[in-house]
Amino acid sequence: MSIWTIARKEWQHQLNGLLGYLFCALFVGATAYPVFFSQSYGNVFLSGVADLRAFFGAFPFTFSVFIPALAMRSWAEERRLGTVELLLSYGLPEGQLVLGKFLGQYGLIVLSLALTLPVPILVGQLAPLDWGQVLCGYLGALFFAAASLALCQFLGTFSQHQILAFLLCSLAMTVLLMVESTLLNFAWHFQNVARGVLDSRDLVFYALFCLVFLFASRQTLITRFWSRPW
């Protein structure tokens, strides 16, 4: 009950301002660009092939910018306004606070992904499209986004300054996209799903990553680790 109330407030918070709409519009633009406007092989008009690898291939880097921008507000804003004190005084289980915030922001990501659906639909009108690949790509994107958001929200608990939170999250996302270890590399795990190959190990990796950082956020709140006046 409380989880959904917090999620709804978070959702409302995003759509009350310009940021939510800007987020959706820029996300759709950034992911549609390689398919329709770029001069590379990914442009369906230039290649004449209904292939969405460039579309899904843009997701990791787009998320690495957009998700820190979204998550930077999550806890930093609560701490800056002092409303975190109010939320904690309600005696809600910390896990519910974390999940509520997560679901509220995840909702915006799901909406943004849904708004990109016209891209494959349009491409599908031009030439026959492998819808299995499309489904697989979206599923992978949902998992990828969940793991990234959990990580960024966790990092956001350490700062009451949005810019600092954004920089911290962007740095972490960049490291996870560039790291050589294939086990930890976010982009590597996404390669398969972008190609339409659904490997449960990739999805389990993202799911575990997400759970670990949701739990870590909960622990951060439980310990009130910052222990200084807000």
């Binding site: 407030k9 409302q12 918070h13 009350n16 306004l81 409303t83 109010l86």
Partner: peptide
């Protein structure tokens, strides 16, 4: 300092 959500 009465913390509230200004956009609500």
């Amino acid at each position: 300092h009465t913390p509230l959500y200004p956009d609500l």
